[in-house]
């Protein structure tokens, strides 16, 4: 129950962060969506054993956090919470892929461990970028931009409604589970049977609420089409933002920066 409330507060904080004022916040949402998309494509396009060449991509989240005055620990905590799920995805990589790729001293590092590390870095980078996009643009503006770049309105409206009613549903869930908890006298309620009934009630309430919302929409002239309001401007700043970051991402993708630095360092050493 507490965790549901905490999650909702956490989600609201992400929304509030998007309402701040900064250079990044003031940019048109389309520019940020395009840059994030190019960033994600660049990161995931690397080979499965690539690790070192992914690290320079950290420049994007770091610069965004600095320019947008976002709390870095908040985002780090969010990403850390997702790490166990990422690890579960790559859990069997070290088991199935035992080809030794590198040696550190006497210890051989298999391809499985390297691909697991690569998966972890890539996930941290891409999830972090998605969080930063929502944290600097807002969920609504992000969804509306998705619609403008061609995602069907049906999906976008579903996402918007999901986001809107997530808070109401979380509130209802938390109240219902509190009522169950208070009458459980410290035990686990009536086990799975009472839990099943609780979930069933929530589903029915959600259904009824959906009907009431639909009635409210019809009462205000809804005919199946959501008319979105668009107030944005894609100007010179946005163009520079998109071109600048795209150039950086493509350069980082094409050039082997860590190798170049290594060569440079070796040159200086000689």
């Amino acid at each position: 129950m507490i965790s549901i409330n905490a999650a909702v507060i956490d989600l609201k904080r992400l929304d509030l962060l998007a309402n701040s004022n900064s250079l990044i916040h003031s940019l048109d949402a389309r520019a940020k969506v395009i840059v994030t998309f190019i960033f994600i494509v660049s990161v995931v396009s690397f080979g499965k054993y690539e690790c070192a060449r992914l690290l320079p991509f950290l420049i994007f989240p770091v610069v965004t956090i600095l320019l947008a005055n976002l709390p870095p620990l908040y985002f780090v905590r969010k990403i850390v919470l997702l790490c166990p799920f990422i690890l579960m995805v790559g859990l069997f990589n070290p088991v199935f892929d035992r080809t030794v790729l590198y040696h550190i001293g006497q210890i051989g590092i298999s391809g499985g461990w390297v691909s697991l590390a690569s998966l972890l870095i890539r996930s941290i980078l891409t999830i972090g970028a998605a969080f930063l996009l929502v944290g600097t643009t807002g969920f609504t503006a992000t969804c509306q931009t998705l619609e403008r770049v061609g995602i069907p309105q049906f999906f976008v409206v579903q996402l918007l409604f999901l986001h809107r009613y997530l808070f109401v549903l979380a509130d209802e869930t938390s109240r219902t589970s509190r009522a169950r908890e208070l009458r459980s006298c410290g035990k686990k309620g009536l086990g799975i049977s009472s839990f099943g009934s609780l979930v069933g009630h929530l589903l029915l309430r959600t259904w009824l609420r959906a009907e009431r919302i639909h009635t409210a929409m019809l009462a205000r002239g809804f005919t199946g089409q959501i008319h979105a309001l668009r107030q944005s401007h894609f100007g010179m700043y946005e163009l520079c933002f998109v071109l600048g970051w795209s150039l950086i991402f493509i350069s980082l993708r094409m050039l082997d920066i860590p190798d170049a630095l290594r060569t440079l360092a070796a040159g200086f050493a000689q």
Partner: peptide
């Protein structure tokens, strides 16, 4: 219930 009526972002 205003939550039924306020559905936009």
């Amino acid at each position: 219930y205003p939550d039924d009526q306020l559905f936009m972002p």
